[in-house]
């Protein structure tokens, strides 16, 4: 007597309908050998599911967190480059405005303040790049505070881009306010890395 193959038995076990399935079922109904094999395959699934859950030998969160922080630093490095590009494009807009015969949308004082804020932001960013925090050992608290500041700077950069594309009714005053906020956050970030978070009251 020819018995069912393992493929056929598994098809029956899993309730799959294949060509010849009816014949296989009919065979099993009359074959104690294949009935036993089929029952064993059903039991095998139960046995596999009953195997003990394997658990990690050590807590891996510290390693995951460390890799997350590094990835965030890499993203921020790109964000920083984006911030420089953003500053350059806004500077170009201001330059074109000042060269234009049309009246400027803000006072010369505001424009000068804006340029000063952008310059300060860029200098702080360059200082941070030179310090290269991603290549230094950072304690967990410092890394957390730095990550929060980086998130806020990234969000602020997006807001700056939106404001640049669709100028607010109060002209460059809104831009100036955002750039001042950026300078403040960049300053805090530099301080966090240079003096460690515990010394800056964050």
């Amino acid at each position: 007597m020819t018995h069912l193959t393992m493929d056929q038995l598994l098809e029956l076990r899993d309730g799959l309908t294949e060509p010849g399935g009816a014949a296989a079922r009919a065979h099993v109904a009359h074959c104690p050998h294949c009935q036993a094999e089929l029952e064993r395959l059903h039991q095998r699934v139960a046995q596999l599911k009953a195997l003990p859950t394997l658990t990690p030998q050590r807590d891996g969160w510290a390693a995951v967190r460390s890799r997350l922080v590094k990835a965030r630093h890499r993203r921020f490095a790109w964000g920083g480059a984006g911030g420089l590009a953003l500053a350059a494009s806004i500077a170009l807009v201001l330059l074109l405005r000042s060269a234009s015969p049309m009246p400027p949308s803000s006072s010369p004082t505001t424009q000068a303040e804006l340029e000063a804020a952008m310059l300060e932001s860029r200098l702080l960013e360059e200082a941070l790049t030179q310090y290269a925090p991603e290549r230094r050992v950072t304690d967990g608290y410092t890394a957390r505070v730095a990550a929060e500041l980086e998130d806020r700077i990234s969000a602020l950069d997006q807001e700056l881009q939106v404001t640049q594309m669709a100028p607010a009714p109060d002209g460059d005053r809104a831009l100036l306010e955002l750039w001042r906020q950026r300078v403040g956050l960049m300053d805090a970030l530099v301080n966090v890395h240079l003096t460690r978070a515990s010394n800056v009251g964050l």
């Binding site: 859950t53 394997l54 658990t55 990690p56 891996g60 969160w61 995951v64 967190r65 997350l68 957390r144 990550a147």
Partner: peptide, 17 residues
Amino acid sequence: QAAIEALYRAFEGPVYN
């Protein structure tokens, strides 16, 4: 990050398994 850690704590076992 606290939320990501919560996900880690909740699914660390089954993921490792």
